[in-house]
Design a protein around this nucleic acid. Structure first.
Length: 577
DNA sequence: GCCGTTTTCGGCCCGACTGTTTTCAGTCG
């Protein structure tokens, strides 16, 4: 699939045009197309073959022909033309915070700056500061920006960002002594990774809160501190992370929350819609001329635009505004819809919880069941179970279940999908289990698509575990065609996992929506290994909601009995729930 | 570059902060 490749080419064209000072809206069109391609689950080559590229909003004749050109030849003349005369090192400079395309273009034209080393030199010798419109302060800030860039500004995992935000908010609330303080931005949208942490406040003593933030002992550097806004860099691990704080009056809180939750694409479209209605939307409210029509609550803002409230997780401009206008928004899955956990480990393999401890924690979540899915024998690094040990675990589960009221542990396994596509336990062993997750844990580059499809054909396999295999902290996923695997799941009546581990969130939002559209059920598992595991369902749920999933799309909204019926319907087996 | 129940041309979201300026450009979100 060439979607991401082409997105990267468009993005590069946008950067080049930006440095050259081309019209902003042309650049915007390339950037928008890059984002759309990046998030699209459907193969752009298929769209091109069907002559449907122009059906995608944001892609017109011009971009469509460039995509076709790239698919045919592997090149794009426009990209070469745009980058002509620009040293490759210039593009790196755009990553320096506080340094934009205009300044990069100026430094290149006036001083021949072609990369980071040149930039450091012209800052050191004062020639950058001497340019028109520049100055000592600007040069100094750019130098600090280079330092920040080199410290690493990789995005935080959603779970990490949530933890930091909670800490900051608690700190600010102490100083505020009342009022509303909430996280906004991509964190509120539950994106899988988070850049900056955005916090919105509506409090009496704003000065005290700004002071609490800028004076906090984890703050390394104050980037800006005005009357209504402050930005700081705080220490996180070995790196730094930006926290933005905004103040608004209480009667603008809803408008500001809407505005700072984003996404940018969602807001741009919303404002366009407002304009068509003769309204103006900003972070203070919805206005008709001078008159303020809404602002205190977020629901009022959407209502003023003729829309129902749109859940933050949907706000990515992936069709949610159109659906809201038609009154056809999905009813997203909620925490209370979840009846059990489908993926947990115990001390029998690489977990840190004993069976009884796991059962207690899962009961405390309000569930009716949890499936213990320890590793199979080939996963030696994880202490995978032999058939004999699995049988012994089953006896232990039976004994425990006899003592538990209103809750059961389901006998399961996370069985390895071996390099030849068979699974790690023979069929008679699997036949005695309540739930079977099949996962790839080795030979990531070897025929993963075919192996998963073969595993799905095994009558005892219920679900493919963490299907892409990616780790958000850095590991590329398997070499796998998820569209084909999801199609195979549909044919066999099987489920795909949404693994809630903060480093996985796998399937991702885009593929979840694809699975939903195909009618393939999603099982949300936490992959619990320790005591902090069960609560991670929160991040799985956020991702599920980003994938537009409703209660009926998710397997573990069924009761234990319902889950057994789902399996029996497929297999024709009779198994007591 | 895209796009059109007012438009095939002329729009394209809006504001805060900073540093450089005597009124605004650049960057960011």
């Amino acid at each position: 699939m060439k979607n991401r490749e082409i997105a990267a080419v468009f993005s590069r064209i946008a950067d080049a045009l930006d440095i050259k000072g081309e019209p902003a809206f042309k650049i915007l069109a390339y950037r928008r197309a890059a984002r759309i391609l990046d998030e699209m689950a459907e193969d752009v080559a298929v769209l091109a073959a069907d002559n449907r590229l122009c059906d995608v909003e944001g892609i017109g004749d011009g971009l469509a022909s460039k995509i076709v050109e790239y698919l045919k030849t592997g090149r794009m003349a426009k990209a070469d033309e745009a980058a002509k005369g620009l040293p490759a090192g210039l593009f790196d400079l755009l990553n320096v915070p506080g340094l934009g395309a205009k300044t990069v273009g100026l430094a290149f034209k006036a001083l021949g700056v072609a990369g980071l080393d040149d930039l450091r030199r012209v800052i050191a010798d004062g020639s950058l500061a001497a340019l028109k419109g520049m100055g000592e302060k600007k040069a100094e800030n750019i130098l600090k920006g280079i330092g920040t860039l080199e410290k690493g500004r990789e995005r935080l995992l959603l779970g990490e960002a949530a933890e930091i935000a909670e800490e900051v908010i608690a700190e600010l609330k102490r100083a505020a002594g009342g009022g509303r303080i909430e996280a906004a931005g991509s964190l509120r949208r539950m994106r899988e990774t988070i850049g900056d942490i955005d916090i919105l406040a509506s409090v009496r003593n704003g000065e005290a809160v700004i002071g609490a933030l800028t004076g906090w002992n984890r703050v390394r550097r104050v980037l800006a501190a005005g009357d209504t806004k402050a930005s700081v860099l705080i220490e996180v691990g070995n790196g730094e992370r930006q926290v933005d704080l905004r103040f608004v009056e209480p009667d603008s809180f809803g408008a500001a929350l809407q505005y700072f939750t984003g996404s940018k694409a969602h807001n741009v479209k919303l404002r366009g819609l407002a304009k068509d209605l003769g309204l103006k939307v900003n972070e203070y409210g919805v206005f008709r001329g001078e008159r303020k029509a809404a602002g205190r609550e977020e629901t009022d803002v959407y209502k003023a635009l003729g829309l129902p409230w749109i859940p933050p997780e949907l706000r990515e401009d992936r069709g949610e505004i159109e659906r809201a206008r038609e009154g056809r928004l999905p009813t997203l899955i909620e925490r209370d819809d979840i009846r059990g956990d489908l993926h947990c480990h115990t001390t029998a393999s690489d977990g840190r919880l004993k069976l009884a401890e796991l059962a207690d924690l899962m009961r405390a979540m309000g569930y009716g069941y949890a499936a213990v899915c320890d590793h199979s024998r080939s996963a030696r690094y994880a202490g995978g179970l032999t058939p004999e040990r699995l049988k012994a675990q089953g006896a232990e589960i039976d004994a425990l279940n006899r003592k538990l009221k209103g809750f059961r542990i389901l006998k399961g396994t996370e069985v390895d999908i071996l390099p030849d596509g068979t699974v790690d336990f023979p069929e008679p062993v699997l036949a005695g289990l309540d739930f079977v997750v099949a996962s790839v844990h080795s030979s990531f580059k070897r025929d993963v698509t075919a192996r998963m499809i073969k595993a799905l054909a095994n009558p005892h396999v219920d679900m493919i575990g963490h299907p892409s295999g990616r780790l958000l902290s850095g590991r590329e996923g398997y070499d796998v065609d998820l569209e084909k695997v999801i199609e195979a799941a549909r044919i066999h009546g099987k489920a795909m996992e949404l693994n809630s581990h903060i480093d996985r969130l796998d399937l991702d939002d885009v593929h979840l929506r694809l699975a939903k559209d195909k009618g393939v059920p999603i099982g949300i598992g936490t992959d619990t290994h320790g005591a902090d595991g069960p609560a991670m369902i929160r991040f799985g749920l956020g991702t599920a909601r980003r994938g537009w999933l409703e209660k009926t799309d998710v397997l573990n909204t069924l009761s234990a009995a319902g889950l057994a019926r789902w399996r029996n319907k497929r297999t024709g087996e009779k198994r007591r729930p």
